[in-house]
């Protein structure tokens, strides 16, 4: 077991070193940012090598912090390089825009996500939403989405308190947590998938 762990660790560290070397060689700011995201994966790899429930619990906050830093830095990059005015349109592919396929595919993904429920389900459903928005173009109603995300997050947290203080109602708490995280992840991912800049064409 220790042998396998060490081998895995060695591999991940080699990957990290390769990433850092690339980082040192690269001079373009944007490219460095992208490379950093790759390097970040190596850190998650080190945690994942633990191969226990603890590792799974640790990866999530690690991932969140990494994404938060990435978003913050890309925002700074945008202001730093004065990239504010950049009209963005939906995916301009004729086949997708005319056909009904995107709607069907999106509906399928969302339904499948609902069945999966939880974090993974949220991810799958969000993919469906992003695909729909991306292919059809959209009128924003981001405030509504944000509010839904906030409320579902509150539900999720509430479920944790139920787990802690009223364990006999575990089933309802489980349902609340499952649905809450589903909606939250779905909303958050589709938000980050559709927010394209200051102005939309």
């Amino acid at each position: 077991m220790w042998g396998e762990y060490s081998t895995g660790l060695l591999l991940v560290l080699v990957a990290a070193v390769i990433g850092f070397v690339a980082l040192a060689v690269e001079t373009d700011d944007l490219h460095r940012l992208l490379l950093l995201d790759l390097v970040e994966i190596a850190a998650l790899g080190i945690i994942a090598l633990l191969g226990s429930d603890l590792a799974e619990a640790l990866i999530l906050p690690g991932l969140t912090v990494g994404i938060a830093e990435l978003l913050a830095l890309s925002q700074i990059y945008v202001t730093k390089e004065n990239l504010k005015d950049r009209p963005v349109r939906g995916l301009n592919i004729e086949v997708i825009q005319k056909a009904d396929a995107p709607a069907v595919l999106s509906a399928f993904l969302v339904v499948y996500g609902l069945i999966l429920s939880g974090f993974t389900g949220g991810g799958v459903a969000a993919l469906g939403l992003v695909f729909f928005f991306a292919s059809r173009g959209y009128k924003e109603d981001l405030e509504m989405l944000e509010m839904a995300g906030g409320i579902s997050w509150a539900v999720w947290i509430l479920a944790f308190f139920v787990f802690m203080f009223l364990p006999q109602y575990w089933f309802i708490a489980l349902m609340c947590a499952g649905v809450g995280i589903l909606i939250k992840v779905m909303v958050k991912l589709s938000l980050s998938g559709t927010v394209w800049g200051e102005r939309h064409g």
Binding site: L23, L33, L36, A42, A43, L44, I46, L58, E69, L73
Partner: peptide
């Protein structure tokens, strides 16, 4: 921005260290 790049890359040794502790 430059500081942010370094801070971001520093999460690798940080989380790596915590995982090694565990």
């Amino acid at each position: 921005y430059q500081y942010g790049l370094v801070a971001l890359s520093a999460t690798v040794p940080l989380f790596g260290a915590a995982a090694l502790y565990a």
